[in-house]
Design a protein around this nucleic acid. Structure first.
Lengths: 107, 107
DNA sequence: TTGACATGCAACCAAATGGTTGCATATTCT
DNA sequence: AGAATATGCAACCATTTGGTTGCATGTCAA
C-alpha cells in the first residue's frame, strides 16, 4: 500500500519536484549525475532522493559502485485518482450548477 | 496566477488536508465550526486555514462576527492538469510500450 | 450597556526540515 | 597495489513549522 502522507510530504519540496523532473527527462540516472547544475552538496541531494525513495516515488538499483535512480509515477497516479479526483468532481459540479442556472430562465 | 509551490506545501500537512475534507463535506463553515472534534486549539486551526487561504485553496467571507470558509478546488485542478498529467502520460507510455512488446512476437 | 461569543494578534517553544562538513566504505581503472 | 571515483554515514547547525498561551478586538443579544 501507498502512504499518501509520505507522497504529499515528498512532493512539498521544490528541490525534490525538480529531481523528479530530471528523472522524467532521463530515467535511471546516478546520484552524481543528478547533482550537476544543482547548488547543493551531493549529500543534500542524496537526502532528497532518500525521501523520494521512501515515498516510493523513485526506485533504485545498485550497479557496481553506482546507484541508479528510476522514476515511479504510480503513487502520483494514485494520488490523482483517489484524492484529486474527488475535488475535481466538486469543481465540475460547480460548473454544472452554474450551467443549469444559466439555462434556467428566471421564474 | 497560481503559485504551485504554495499549493504543494499547503497540501503537505495532514491536518490541512483534513480541513479541506471537512469543507468538501460542508462548504462555508466558520472557524469554530471547523474546530469541533479536532485535538488542536482554535489558533492552530486558524493558522492552517490561513495557509490554505494563502495557497488559494480556500476563500473566505466575513459575515458579522463570523468568518465563513469556502473550498476552492481550482488550484488542485491546475496541479492535476499541469503537473500530474505529465507523469500520468509517462505512466501510460510505460503501459503502452509494455503492450506493444507483448503483442510483437519475437523476431 | 453589558456579557457572551467569534475572531485576530503576538510572543514563545519544541520538533522537524534542509542543509552543511568530515570521514568511512566500496568499486573501478591503471 | 594504489589512486581516483561513487556512495554512505553521522554529527552538527540555522530556519521553518506546528503548536501553545495570553490578551485584544469586534459583534450579537438580553
Amino acid at each position: 500500500m501507498m502512504d499518501a502522507d509520505l507522497v504529499f510530504r515528498a512532493l512539498a519540496d521544490p528541490s525534490r519536484r525538480h529531481l523528479l523532473d530530471r528523472l522524467f527527462e532521463k530515467n535511471g540516472q546516478t546520484l552524481t549525475e543528478l547533482c550537476v547544475g544543482l547548488e547543493m552538496t551531493r549529500q543534500a541531494v542524496s537526502k532528497h532522493l532518500a525521501i523520494l525513495e521512501e515515498a516510493n516515488l523513485v526506485a533504485t538499483r545498485k550497479q557496481g559502485r553506482d546507484k541508479l535512480h528510476y522514476l515511479n509515477p504510480v503513487p502520483i497516479h494514485e494520488i490523482a485518482n483517489r484524492w484529486i479526483g474527488k475535488y475535481e468532481r466538486a469543481r465540475l459540479d460547480v460548473l454544472s450548477d452554474l450551467k443549469k442556472t444559466l439555462e434556467k430562465p428566471e421564474p
